[in-house]
Design a binder for these strands. Structure first.
Lengths: 193, 193
DNA sequence: GTCATTTCTTGTCTTATGACAAGATTTTTT
DNA sequence: AAAAAATCTTGTCATAAGACAAGAAATGAC
């Protein structure tokens, strides 16, 4: 069972028993992704989600003016998912791409539903997980309002420092809501202190 | 049953039968709120949510520097809820206050759980609802990045025009991520065209 | 109806960030 | 290894929005 350590950490929840974990873990399928590959592309309907064990990914949308805007970075221990597309069965507006080679564990929507309907503690885990995601998404819009670009950069540096070694500046900049030029200047300013 | 029209609209979902609606509606309790009253205050743990039938409300958080930042406006047909506090049982950082006198239908967390566990289509409705909320929250942070303050103002004007008659400028401005001074100038500029 | 408070507008000046462009550096391709 | 492409930095100038302050207008309290 030790091969499932990463998955178990993601699904860690008080009510889940060992037998539940066995069932949950064995529903996941190991997937190897190469740098640059896509887990999801604009226009598709997501049919699964992925638990990220190793590597880094990013999600981005194309803005009205045609620029890529990074909407999320994923690091090990994150669930890579496009909730709207998976749960509402609508075509996604996001692209999810590997920044490095990655190991993931895939769970199909039908297997998810099966677990969600039959394991009570999994249902609770799901609601809890969703509440946490919603909370951090709200925090993100709040941060866009209350924090300066510099503060947002420093926060990302604290939370996902690995990202800054692997994602090009413009991806990070669009995630922070600024241009790559500005981010370059912010970095210069910070390192000068 | 016609007194429950507002609630039924909120819970409209293919799989729900008439008997389900009866059970759901009768779990809600009518609540009258006066302008200025709070449904939730910072530090409390939410024990219920509210379906808004008539009136307007806003949610706000206090930023690190001590300013009120409006995080949401609610109009009839919306569910007034603080997901993180209700589902994770943690003290909220938000305040929810009535902008006008309001009619709501209250559902306690325990009644919600009872419905969620026993009516299959209600579980699905809940997941769908949550996915939609998460989607619109993500849209909001994207909009903070890709749209100008003027565009964001025009979007709010389109989506919740009533709000602009009842909420003071500074509440609207902080929701848009700008100062009331700037919003005043944006309005002047727009009306001059 | 008057006074006090809150809300809104406007002016001036400052600041953060953007737009555009050029050059330097790094990475990828062949 | 050389060429091409992508990435990053820096310069100059433009612009959106903020800070602060003063006054006008609207709202609420007595």
């Amino acid at each position: 069972m030790s091969e499932f350590t990463a998955i178990r950490k993601i699904y860690n929840y008080p009510g889940l028993k060992t037998s539940d974990y066995e069932r949950i873990c064995s529903s996941h399928e190991k997937v190897i992704i190469s740098k640059g590959d896509f887990l999801l592309r604009e226009g598709q309907i997501a049919n699964e989600y992925f638990c990220l064990e190793e590597g880094l990914m990013r999600a981005y949308a194309n803005s009205y003016e045609g620029n890529e805007v990074t909407t999320a970075f994923f690091s090990p221990g994150d669930i890579i998912i496009e909730v709207a597309s998976l749960f509402l069965r609508i075509p996604t507006k996001e692209n999810i791409q590997a920044l490095t080679d990655c190991n993931c564990w895939k769970l199909s929507f039908s297997d998810f539903q099966e677990l969600f309907q039959n394991i009570n503690a999994f249902t609770e885990w799901g609601r809890t997980w969703m509440a946490r995601v919603l909370f951090s998404t709200k925090q993100r819009s709040l941060s866009m309002i209350t924090d300066s670009a510099t503060d947002r950069y420093l926060a990302l540096l604290r939370e996902k420092p690995e990202i800054l070694h692997y994602a090009p500046l413009k991806h990070v900049a669009s995630y922070l809501g600024i241009t790559d030029t500005s981010l370059s200047r912010i970095r210069k300013y910070i390192s000068s202190k």
